[in-house]
């Protein structure tokens, strides 16, 4: 069947319209949140909801004046950054060795660790870390979040190492390079794009992760996601300030994800795609 040019154009216009609608549906709640962050408290609770309003930065001012928002942000940064460093430091060499030796079981073990519900570990951690009075410390939060980042780093790096020509590694070994030297001076520069994806996704996952910090963080180590959650429970909720906070908390992962957007889905699905 030969389609007439008019029919083809009509169909493609219809496709474009459907995709535009899908994008609007996906963006609308996010834009609503961002807008609410710039509304006065009268405008944010107005019904019917207002599309047009006088934007104000009062909510953002309140955020920094009335709560230690920057302290929470610092805590998030320390936890997500620390967990990413540990996850990469342990996961990248492991991925290299697993790939070179074509071993299955270490990767499968990591995958199982990633699939189990978090509370399965959180219960014994809570008992163990309470016993040594370590609940609320940064190092406990960093170590527990590294349980999220390590399998992620390993599985994201695997396909990148698999794609390295073995001859390159063998040549370096024949030249007398040490094991560590082969990894750091030969292999890692060749998988730099993979490292970037792994680093960014580790950070985003640890930044977003809620459950562990909900239980294990303390007064001075509360990360943003837990602080935002606690903010809701405090009686009368200041929706405008809360939406301003939510916007700021959501911004780093979205911006970071844009950097690696072409490889993002492959990274997130790593482990499930490969059999």
């Amino acid at each position: 069947m030969v389609k007439s040019p008019f029919r083809a154009r009509l169909l493609s216009a219809l496709d474009g319209a459907q995709l535009a609608i899908a994008c609007v549906v996906l963006l609308a709640p996010i834009l609503w949140m961002v807008a609410a962050g710039f509304k006065s408290s009268a405008a944010v609770t107005a019904y019917p909801p207002r599309l047009l309003f006088h934007p104000t930065t009062a909510n953002y001012a309140a955020l920094f004046a009335r709560m230690p928002f920057l302290d929470y942000a610092w805590n998030s940064l320390v936890i997500a950054g620390g967990a990413s460093v540990i996850g990469l430091a342990l996961g990248v060499p492991a991925a290299f060795a697993v790939s070179w030796n074509r071993m299955a079981w270490p990767a499968v073990a990591m995958l199982a660790a990633r699939m189990a519900p978090g509370a399965l570990f959180l219960l014994p951690w809570f008992v163990m870390f309470s016993a040594i009075h370590a609940v609320g410390s940064f190092w406990v939060l960093i170590l527990t979040h590294a349980v999220i980042t390590l399998p992620l780093a390993l599985w994201i790096m695997l396909p990148f190492f698999d794609a390295l020509p073995r001859s390159v590694i063998e040549a370096a070994l024949i030249d007398g390079c040490s094991d560590a030297g082969v990894l750091t001076r030969v292999a890692l520069p060749l998988v730099a794009p993979g490292l970037a994806v792994a680093a960014i996704l580790c950070f985003v996952f640890a930044w977003n992760y809620f459950l562990f910090a909900l239980v294990l963080s303390g007064f001075s180590t509360t990360p943003l996601v837990v602080a935002a959650f606690n903010f809701v429970g405090e009686g009368v909720t200041d929706w405008g300030a809360l939406m301003a906070a939510a916007t700021l908390i959501g911004l780093p992962p979205v911006l970071l994800a844009f950097f690696v957007q072409r490889r993002l889905v492959g990274g997130l699905a790593a482990g499930a795609v490969k059999e």
């Binding site: 996906l26 996010i30 809620f210 837990v226 935002a228 939510a246 979205v254 993002l264």
Partner: peptide, 9 residues
């Protein structure tokens, strides 16, 4: 954008 946002957000 939707699935890289923190679930809390």
């Amino acid at each position: 954008s939707p699935f890289v946002l923190p679930p809390v957000v």
